[in-house]
Every structure is written in C-alpha cells, then in structure tokens.
Design a protein around this nucleic acid. Structure first.
Lengths: 201, 201
DNA sequence: GTCTATAATTTGATAGAC
DNA sequence: GTCTATCAAATTATAGAC
C-alpha cells in the first residue's frame, strides 16, 4: 500500500528523473520537490537506484497495458493503429517528456532496468499476435504488402517523434507550449491520413 | 590548429558523451579511451563543460552545414527532401547515436549549449527561405497544401525516429546491428514513397 | 607536455536523537 | 516517522615536480 508520502516522492522523482535523466537527477532536488527531508527518500526507498527502478517499472507497465488492451481487441489493423494514435497522443500530451526519457535511459543504462522492461513487454505476448494479423490482412489484400517491421516503424515514427523533439523545437525555434500542443493534436488526423495512404495505395 | 592529441581526446570524449550523456560521462573514461593521462584533458580543454561544449558545437555545425548546402541549392522541394533523406541517412548510419544524444542534451541542458546551437542554426538563414519555397510550391499546386511545420515534422519523423529508437529496438527486441542497418537502408526508398503520397495526393 | 599527488566539491547514504 | 549531522565515495580540477 502506497502512502500519501510515497506518492508525493514518486511524483517528484518522476519529474526530476524525466527532466535530468538518471545521472543528472539529484536526490536533494527530488526531496525539495516532494517537500520532504532528503533522509526520508532513503527511508521509503532504499536508494536512488531503487527509486528509479520503481518509476521505470511503473511507466513501462502503464504503456504496455494500454498497448495490449488495444492490440488484443477484435478489430482490424487500421482500426488498431487509429486507436493507438488517439490514445497514445493523449497519453503523451499528459507526459510529453516520457518518450525521450525512456528511450534515452534504455539506451544508456546497460543492464538492470532493461530487464524490467523486457519482462513487462514479453509478458504480454500481444506483439507476435499483432504481427501475424498484419501478415494475414496483407495476404487478404486488405492492406498493401510491406515488411511488418517497416509498418511498425512508420507508425511509431509519425506518432512518437514530435514528442521526442518537443524540447528541441521549443528551445531552438522558440515555440510556446500551447501552439505545440495544438500542432500535436492536429497531427492525429494527419497521421491517420498518411497511414491510410501508406497501407492502402 | 588541433594537434593529434586534441583530436584523440575529442574523438574519445564524443564517444563517451554520446554513450552516457553529459552527467553520466566520466573524465577518467575519456582519458582511458584516448590513451592519455586524465590531467591532460584539463590541459587541452579547461573543463568537462568546455570539452562538451566544443563537441556540441562541432556536431551542430556539421549538421547545419550539410542542411544549408542542400536547402540553398536551386531544386524543387521534393528534390531537396530526397537529398536530405539520402545524405542524412548515410550520416546517421555513421553516427547512429548522435540524434538521440543531441535531442536529449538539448532537452536536459538548460542553458549554454542551447545558445551554441541556436547561433549555429540562426546564422544560416536557410530555414526561412525553405519555408517560403514550400508555400510557393503549394500555391502553384506542385504540392498539396499542408501547414509547413507539419510537412517538416512528417519528414523528420520518418527520417530520424528509427535512429532514435536504435538502442531500444536492439536491446528490447534483440535485433543485431547488421539487420538494423539493413532496415534503415530499405527505409530510404520507403520514406520517399510515403513523402510523395503525402505531398502530392 | 606529461605525470603524480592531492585539493575541493558534490552527492548518495547512514547514524542516532527525538 | 522525522530531522540534523555526518560519513564515505566518487569525481572534477589543480599544484607542482620533471
């Protein structure tokens, strides 16, 4: 059971880790954000490493759960992509720094937390099932024949990249938060259009 | 004039920074990789911060130069995108970790180096010119009317994301380096096709 | 220019009183 | 459970001999 305090710590830690990354995050800053004494961090979570691990695990499980739920439903490939585009756009609008953070930490951290994510991902055997469905619909002529990994890459690229580039665009091109969100929301329809062109023509 | 030693240090530092990020990088490791005494790092480059700054500046200038060269040539928008897709794919195949590294450091580092990049980017006034060309060709009916920022986002998404997800895909899905490069090279043609569908139909 | 030794600082973690 | 004081380790940076 997670206490009020624990929740406050987790929330503060998540925001600091996402902003600075694991190595750049400071326990003192997490404590400050949680309005708590630094020692208490070690009381509730033994170490920085463990606090980090808990957050990674939580984020991964959330993402995988949402994905599995969509993938396991009995609808067409394109309908699934549409749902993924809608729901993940909304999720990432709430957590715009999450994608870059996760990709980066996975790339840098050479061990433990990757296993956490691997476990979460391979526990759900949804992915294989989805790849099979893509092949099946391609054979039936419902969608064009393209290597399934290229299909996945294309959807993910269009969907995720704008969030990855969020800070870059805002910092370098000096765009404000609201217009950025606006652009992102406009993209939902655009991505669906591009995807249909890609899969059906 | 950069000596042999300086080059060795810069190369070593670049690889360590790209692998671990600024906060995660260790001066000792850079020294080891450059086969040099740790003190010498401070002799040639005053501090970690400055060493990092020099590398960021160098990488940015390289990227901007290549971009400007393509953008300033007298060819159509689609021809420019084709060239960008070809040349940046090749560049990123050589430096697959550069995109994630740069995006991440810009997002995390709240000051100095962002100005380095801003300067490099705004010194070349190519971007505005290119945006104007897009609008012009849209008015002429050569390409479909879509907000130009969405056009840019779409191209960059398709082009850059696979490199950002490089380590993720390799770590989580356990794909080897060669097949990854293969997928990436296949994508050149695919992206051009998708882009034509997007801009012309 | 190069190396050894060491300073100075940061930072994660703990001991111990309350 | 909470706080203060402090430790121990890691890490950047420098002094100074050669």
């Amino acid at each position: 059971m997670t206490s009020f305090r624990e929740k406050a710590i987790l929330e503060a830690a998540k925001s600091v880790f996402m902003e600075k990354g694991y190595s750049g995050a400071r326990m003192q800053k997490i404590a400050d954000k949680a309005n708590i004494n630094k020692s208490m961090l070690h009381y509730y979570f033994r170490s920085k490493e463990q606090l980090f691990g808990d957050i990674i695990e939580d984020m991964t499980l959330n993402i995988v759960a949402k994905y599995s739920c969509i993938i396991d439903s009995e609808i067409t490939v394109i309908e699934k992509f549409d749902k993924i585009i809608d729901e993940y756009t909304d999720l990432m609008v709430q957590n715009p720094y999450a994608p870059l953070f996760l990709l980066n930490e996975i790339s840098q951290n050479n061990s433990k937390h990757i296993n956490t994510m691997k476990a979460a991902i391979s526990n759900s055997r949804s992915s294989n099932k989805f790849l099979k469905q893509i092949l099946k619909e391609q054979k039936l002529g419902l969608i064009k024949s393209t290597p399934s990994n290229q299909v996945i890459f294309t959807v993910l690229s269009l969907l995720v990249f704008p969030f990855i580039a969020n800070s870059f665009v805002k910092n370098i091109l000096e765009i404000e938060d609201e217009s950025y969100t606006q652009i992102i929301l406009e993209r939902k329809a655009l991505i669906k259009t591009v995807l249909r062109q890609f899969l059906m023509t």
